[in-house]
Simulated scan of single mutants.
Amino acid sequence: MSTYLAGFSLGLSLILAIGSQNAFVLKQGLKKRHVFIVCLVCAVSDGILISLGVAGFGTVVKQFPTIEIVARYGGAAFLAIYALLSFKSAFTETHALEAEAETESSLFKTIAICLAFTWLNPHVYLDTVILLGSVSTQYHPEQFQFALGAVIASFVFFFSLGYGARVLAPVFENPKAWKIFEFFVGVIMLALALSLVANV
């Protein structure tokens, strides 16, 4: 049980910070748009990466740094584009939750964006594959319990964030609040994109 709790607490602490993936989940939750599938895609993706890390994939990433480089520049480009779209939305569109609900994005497009936020983010590999993978070696032969704790932490966090966002819905009935949120998301995305390039 202690090994499971160690994996759960470390896994949860690594994804608590507001990042591109979390901001996207929060945004989908506020719009009540494909919330379940978005939360599921994020949690399952984390689960796959954590499992790969515990299984030893982290050593492969270290041996082939090209994987990290491709993810870094691809992720930076994606985040920069999404930031510009958020800024455009903040300054040029009229916002309200009702209006946002009417402009429904396709499920395929939503899943594609969600996957990009997850798999094009080098920090995800650092946290799940390398960090959790290396820490799990301390709990041998109970690494499975450690990984299970971290995976469940991802499910708890993403579903709580996605469905908990509805508590904030009354605030976002005000179009100005939505504009501020779009601008805030844009700032987060742009800052993360710049950090990826600056850390080369």
Rank of each mutant, 00 (worst) to 15 (best):
Q28T: 01
A83G: 10
Y125F: 12
K32I: 10
A153K: 08
Q138P: 00
F8T: 05
F117M: 14
H123C: 00
A76M: 03
Q138V: 03
L12Q: 08
E104F: 02
V197D: 10
P141R: 02
Q138L: 14
S136P: 09
L120S: 08
L97F: 06
F78I: 12
L14C: 10
H95A: 11
G149F: 04
S136V: 04
P122S: 06
P65T: 03
H123V: 07
K109S: 15
I50A: 07
S136N: 09
G186W: 10
F184R: 01
L126T: 00
T103F: 07
A193Y: 07
L131F: 14
A76R: 04
F184A: 15
L85W: 05
I188W: 06
K62H: 11
L190Q: 09
H34A: 10
G19H: 08
L5M: 15
I67G: 04
A116N: 05
K176V: 15
R166M: 14
F155E: 11
E182T: 03
V124G: 14
F91G: 13
Q138H: 12
K88V: 04
G133D: 07
F158P: 09
D127A: 10
F146G: 02
L79Q: 07
W178E: 00
Y82R: 03
L30N: 07
L30K: 06
G53P: 05
S160Q: 05
N199Q: 13
S9F: 13
F184N: 02
F183Q: 03
V38D: 11
S160E: 11
L14T: 13
Y163G: 08
S105A: 13
F36Y: 13
L84C: 15
A55R: 11
T66R: 01
T118I: 14
V35D: 11
S136R: 05
F36T: 14
I130F: 06
A193V: 07
V124R: 00
M1C: 09
K32A: 15
S105V: 08
F183D: 00
K88N: 14
F184K: 01
K176S: 14
S136A: 15
E100V: 00
T3H: 09
V151P: 03
A198F: 06
H140C: 03
G133E: 06
L194V: 15
G11D: 06
V185Q: 01
T103V: 12
V167D: 01
A77E: 08
I81R: 12
T137P: 02
G29E: 07
K27M: 08
Q28E: 12
F91Y: 13
W119F: 15
F144N: 05
M1A: 13
Y125M: 04
K27G: 11
L126C: 01
E102S: 14
H140S: 15
K32P: 00
R72Y: 03
V167Y: 12
F8Q: 08
L161G: 02
I50W: 10
S134V: 12
A96D: 15
A96K: 09
A193P: 03
A83E: 09
V151Y: 00
V54N: 06
E68H: 05
